[in-house]
Design a protein around this nucleic acid. Structure first.
Lengths: 312, 312
DNA sequence: TAGGGGCAACAACCTGCAGTTGTTGTTCAG
DNA sequence: CTGAACAACAACTGCAGGTTGTTGCCCCTA
């Protein structure tokens, strides 16, 4: 299917005749005629009945018309999404399964009128660079990276401290525990696949392991969260960290437990980063929304990596 | 924007490299490379970063990808809508403002899983022919047309008797009447634009005028229902017929009245027509839904044209 | 460190299609 | 009966989109 032909079809449906449609499209009548002939041959149905006074839609034409308009609209949206200037608000999230993706979803529900594009960049470094260059308008990250400082003109505000939960199967040693302490995790095997080295997730878990002693496998093949939970559910020794905010379709036949971790509670500190002089109107709305809906900090003592402390 | 290029882009995003995408598309790597180059030039942004081990999405590429998929999906739906066989259920309604359009909307709400296309054909004759030829699966019409009989193999069942309401402005003689009788309408001027001669609407109002004596203008330019209501609201003599089921955005500043017509109540008899041997699964669902939600007949005496009486 | 493999871009060529101009055939209004 | 309006048909042309052949880059391995 050729979009130029579709555009010609819609133009004729609007104009009622080939001639006028051709003028609208800055083409000759013959060119329009050919486009329609090609489209009709493509689809195998007649779309227009040619009369001496113009053209009328056949039944198939009537049926196609709204779909054709939708198609052109989809094209327009696609082009607009990457058009420099006046494009949709672009937000980078750590991962589509992470809690920040939920925050963005909430924002979209609250402000459906603001066009939104969500991307996932490789690591905080890439994300900060992208924000600085204006390639994305905002990013949810744990600031700052170890040994790094934010570039000038980039602002950050903490929006969510995400407490970790230990996810274990029914035969695990902690399956019936009301809670565990990080100290109890020393020597445990915790599996966190899908965290590429160099990302701040990986750095976070590395520091957590170094501080409290569990062995955390942040590498290894990532076959998706379903496969991960499958493995956890069947193992008496393996565990993983999950957030209670992680939007999951919990498999009904897996008897998994989410055990809180306390004294201190390891939290993953999400902040919103943006460029101070970014004039995008959606950005201000996003900041306002996030601050308004920001939950209270976790009660009790929390732990986060030293490098992740936000000054604000 | 060229759909072939978009398809190449999505193929690369899925495959991770030009080479494999080219194989998937049954093209050479060079052709795919050219398509992407053209697309990038078109959009004015770089979509892919070429690496020695394949290609990765840029930020713009990440943003475009879901839009590109949506675009291809819209194309697929458009093609499917006119593909002979296994296409969506096609229903013809008298007009998108008429009550039958509301019935179809209700059906779609009740069965969103059944793909539906709505068309509006010129008159009952065209509609019945279309049903006979299989071009549409069902039509809502007033059967039978004067002097016509339904072709063999076409079945009809009455689904709605739509009572007419007289719509008048605040200065009209009947503006404060609780109801009027058709006999009272003798000599009144009633304006029903947009009913082309030869359609059953027109035939209906002609017979109504002949039976009870009002003068009904079924011709004249149709500037849309808003313009009609505008005129009615300002005139002390003009009136029009509306159905209370007509889905309208009632203009707040127009003090229009809908006066019931009784003794007898003129009703517009909508029936569903379909081809007995049409195997479309959605058709059975539509019939079932309509019969289940069919309202009781209007109370009191009703009037309808002799030719519109349904034998069932 | 050299060599081979894998990948994408570049170059040259070729086919065909999309556009143009010119013309015909049909219908309708005056 | 004639002219105007409209769409289809015919012939020509240029370039877009494909092909094959080749280069250049990077990475892995011996």
């Amino acid at each position: 299917m050729d979009l130029k032909a579709v555009r010609a079809f819609v133009a004729i449906a609007d104009a009622g005749q080939f001639q006028k449609a051709a003028v609208d499209l800055s083409l000759t009548q013959q060119a329009v005629s050919k486009r329609i002939a090609a489209l009709e041959k493509d689809l195998g149905v007649r779309l227009l009945v040619r009369t001496p006074r113009g053209a009328e839609l056949t039944i198939d034409g009537q049926v196609l018309l709204p779909h054709a308009r939708a198609l052109l609209q989809a094209e327009e949206r696609a082009v607009a999404a990457v058009r420099p200037g006046e494009r949709a608000l672009r937000v980078d999230v750590l991962g589509r399964r992470a809690a920040t993706a939920g925050l963005v979803r909430d924002f979209h529900r609250a402000h459906p009128e603001i066009p939104l594009d969500v991307v996932t960049l490789f690591d905080a470094d890439t994300a900060v660079t992208a924000v600085r260059d204006g390639a994305v308008d905002a990013t949810f990250r744990a600031v700052t990276m170890p040994g790094r400082r934010l570039p000038d003109g980039i602002e950050a505000v903490p929006v969510l401290d995400e407490p970790l939960r230990l996810c274990v199967g029914p035969d695990h040693e902690f399956a019936r525990a009301a809670s565990v302490t990080p100290a109890q995790l020393a020597g445990q095997r915790i599996w966190m696949p899908g965290n590429a080295p160099g990302t701040e997730w990986s750095a976070y878990y590395d520091e957590l392991a170094e501080t409290f002693g569990p062995s955390i496998d942040t590498i290894g093949p990532n076959f998706g969260v379903e496969a991960l939970l499958d493995t956890i559910a069947g193992s008496p020794t393996l565990a993983t960290f999950l957030s209670e905010r992680t939007p999951l379709v919990w498999p009904a036949d897996h008897d998994l437990r989410l055990v809180p971790v306390c004294d201190p509670t390891p939290v993953y500190p999400h902040s919103l980063l943006w460029r101070t002089d970014n004039p995008h109107p959606g950005l201000a709305a996003l900041r306002t929304h996030l601050l308004a809906t920001r939950p209270r900090l976790t009660e009790g003592e929390v732990w986060k990596p030293a490098w992740a402390t936000v000054t604000s």
